[in-house]
């Protein structure tokens, strides 16, 4: 029943690492046993985003090369019941491992975890190939920008070529005010252009930066919009049908009045 999910995007900086960390935290808070694997060898960051950077001893390359046991490389996140991190190596490069080795590692992790989530590096080179090699399905992260959507399209084509035929789209950093104004590509348009199904929408929110500053997954902040969005994504991964959340700001006098008078 275990599943390997790769979080990918093509373009860098669209929120793959943040997405990986939050989906992992959300799944774990819903009782699943989860391991997050940072496959971005040479540009290790998932540990930092999760606030686990001081606890890294061994890494992915150590495990694959056999210089340590898998168990000793896993970093347990103490804030969550069943959340683990397998960090990337920082001093090696993407060619330090190959696709077969990643497949083998994923199979090994499957016997121990419900969900194995792989944080894929940006780009379409060896790092991407390694990350998708062992994946059962993919989450393609994009933002409502032309460059990110174009790269997402390229990645969707490459996933199919690499045998990953089940993939869904996560649209990150949506600004409702700009969409309304007509200055940001809307959700329907992105889906229409890319022709793939949606797994979630995450609003652009300063809480993400604040959480990352502190090294805490945003889902820990119960009240924030992104927390709700990521939890919804986690539920959909588990096969629970949840409607798309209302991205509108709840604050402001106008909406307060609207709430009081029941719209």
């Amino acid at each position: 029943m275990a599943e390997v999910i790769v979080v990918t995007s093509g373009k860098g900086g669209v929120g793959k690492t943040t997405t990986t960390s939050n989906i992992g935290a959300a799944l774990s808070s819903m009782g699943k046993k989860v391991v997050l694997v940072d496959t971005d060898i040479g540009l290790r960051n998932l540990d930092l985003v999760m606030g686990l950077e001081n606890r890294v001893v061994f890494n992915l390359v150590d495990v694959i090369e056999g210089s340590c046991k898998l168990q000793s490389a896993l970093v347990k996140d103490k804030r969550f019941e069943n959340l683990y991190l397998l960090p990337a190596a920082q001093t090696k490069d993407k060619d330090a491992i190959n696709e077969e080795q990643m497949k083998k590692l994923c199979e090994e992790l499957k016997s121990d975890f419900d969900y194995i989530i792989l944080d894929c590096p940006a780009g379409i080179e060896q790092g991407f190939k390694n990350a998708v090699a062992g994946a059962d399905r993919a989450i393609v992260v994009t933002t409502p920008e032309v460059s990110a959507v174009r790269d997402a399209d390229k990645i969707i084509g490459m996933l199919t070529a690499h045998g990953v035929t089940e993939y869904k789209l996560l649209v990150n950093r949506v600004r409702v005010d700009m969409v309304k104004r007509g200055d940001m590509i809307g959700l329907e348009d992105i889906i229409d252009i890319l022709g793939i199904k949606l797994i979630g929408v995450v609003p652009d929110d300063e809480n993400i930066i604040i959480s990352t500053n502190r090294g805490e997954p945003a889902v820990l902040n119960e009240k924030s919009k992104p927390a709700e969005a990521y939890k919804n994504v986690a539920k959909r991964i588990m096969g629970i049908d949840v409607p798309l959340m209302d991205l509108e700001e709840k604050g402001g006098i106008f909406s307060a009045i609207k709430r009081i008078f029941g719209k």
Binding site: E145, V146, V149, R150, D153, K154, G182, D183
Partner: peptide, 18 residues
């Protein structure tokens, strides 16, 4: 509207890419 410009440009560029 800039989103429409973006949409049209994307559709064109993706046709080439695809």
């Amino acid at each position: 509207k800039s989103k429409n410009v973006a949409k049209e440009r994307l559709k064109l560029v993706l046709m080439g890419d695809r």
